[in-house]
Structure formats: structure tokens, C-alpha cells
Amino acid sequence: MVDFLMMFSLCICVLSGVTLLIVHIWSKKKQKKEEAEDKTGGTVFHSGTRNVPKPIKERAGILQVLAPDGANTMPVSYMTLDDNGIELYYAGLYIDKLPVEGRFAHSFAGIFNMDYVESSVIIDPLLEESQKKINRQIRSLDMERSGERDRNRLRVLDGKIADAERWARQIDSDQSTLFETYFLFLIRAESLKLLTERISEFISRGKGIGFRSCYAMHKEAFLTSLHLMRYLKQKYLSGKI
């Protein structure tokens, strides 16, 4: 019985030694393979051949394919993109003034249905500022009414105050809220002359809508119009057309 246990222990020791030797040899081979890959920049196979990676241009991903070759944002009234050797001109416009009696479908149909215009409508809910804004509006109307003597003007102001107070009650009860809405339009053309002509045509279709140029901010207008679920907000924009 003792001899059997000794033989069994000896076999276990021999197997353990062989296993450690195999692991050591495998680790050495793996280390040499990694060192060879670091030197050559490719994968070394057991046959000795190497798989060297292709240059980036030959294995470009979808983002590299879609990205323009260059951009020029230095002009203040437009920007240009180099699309595989084709120079494209872009100009951003936003709405500064709406017609008093404008209707959305009627007033905006002409400018939203243009092939070379990318239209963006940004709606920003004012969850916490709604009550403050409506209160300021009511105070402003009330101050104007207190110094008014014209009966016709007083009637108009009374109607505006009644409407503002109705909105204030709905906001107080969380039945409604106010929104800030931005309209951004990105116009595209293959030449500067054509871009100017398209801007003129676009403005003429506005039916009383006031437009302003994204003066020196056309890069931000371009990025905002890409519909990336975010927009670049600039507080002060100048450069009226």
C-alpha cells in the first residue's frame, strides 16, 4: 500500500513538471510573437507570413468616407466645404421676425419646400421660466395701461392682459408651458454667385418673414443643422441681410 502511494505521488510530480514545462514554452513563443508584431506592425502567423495592416485610406470607415476633405470658415457671410474636389458654399439664416397675421402652413410652405435648403426647427420648453416670463408680460402690459388715455388702445390692452392671465392660470396649474422656437435654414450652392441668387429667392418666398444672416457663425449653423440631437446656441447674432 505504501509503495502504491509513493508511485502515485511520483506520477503526480512528473505530470506537474511536464505541465509547467509546456506552459513555459508556450509563454516564450507567445512573447516572441508579440515582439515580432510590435516591430512589423502586423500579425505573424505560425507559417512565418505577416499580415501587415493596410493604410488608413484603403480601409476607411463610414465616417472617414462621409467627412469632407476640408472646410473654410473664415468668410463672415458664408462657409465652404471641399467635397472630394468639389467646392460647396453654405450660408445660414434664421428667422428674426414673424408676420403679425402669419399662418404656419401658409407662411412657411414656400421656404420649407426648397431642394437646396436644410430646414431645422428647434423647440425649447421653458419649464421653470414660463411663470416668470408671463408675469413680466402682465406687469409690462399693466404699466402701459396705467398711462394710456386712448379708449381704443385701452380695449386692446385689456384683451392682451386677459389672455396673459389666462395663460398664467394654466401655467400655475401645470396644464401648459411656454416654448422658445428657433428656425434655422442652411442654404447650399456650387458657387458664390449661385448662393447669392438662392438666398435672394429664399427671402422672396418668406411672405413677410424677417431673416437674419448667421454672420460669422455659419460653422455653428452648419453643425446645428446636422440633426445630431444638439444645437450650438449663440446669444447675440448680428449681420442683418
Rank of each mutant, 00 (worst) to 15 (best):
D69I: 00
S204W: 02
N113D: 12
G41E: 03
E201F: 11
D158I: 02
F185K: 01
C11R: 08
G239T: 11
S77T: 13
V65E: 07
L178V: 01
L157S: 04
L5V: 10
M114K: 10
F202R: 07
K54D: 10
D115R: 14
G85K: 08
S200F: 03
R103E: 12
L226K: 13
R145A: 15
L81K: 05
E101I: 02
M229F: 07
A91S: 14
K193Y: 09
K193I: 07
S173V: 00
T73D: 14
T181Y: 01
F179W: 09
D124N: 14
L157P: 02
L126C: 00
F202C: 03
R103P: 00
I199Y: 01
S173F: 01
A189W: 09
M1H: 09
A162I: 01
E201V: 03
K219H: 11
G110T: 06
Q234L: 04
T80H: 09
I56S: 13
D174M: 03
H24Q: 03
A67V: 00
Y231G: 07
D38V: 02
M143V: 10
S191L: 08
C13M: 12
T43L: 11
K28I: 06
M74Y: 14
S191Y: 11
L20N: 02
K29F: 13
R155A: 15
I122E: 05
D96C: 09
E34W: 04
Y236S: 13
S107Y: 07
S120M: 13
L81E: 08
F222G: 06
D158A: 11
S238E: 13
L126S: 01
K133C: 03
L226N: 09
I22W: 13
D38E: 13
V76E: 08
K57T: 05
T19W: 11
L184N: 03
V100G: 08
G85M: 04
F108N: 04
E197N: 15
L98K: 04
F8A: 15
Q175F: 14
K57R: 12
S77W: 05
V117E: 08
H227L: 03
G206A: 14
D69N: 15
L141E: 07
F45D: 11
E201D: 15
Q234S: 11
E148P: 00
R188Y: 03
L126I: 00
R50W: 07
G206V: 01
L15V: 09
L81S: 10
W167S: 13
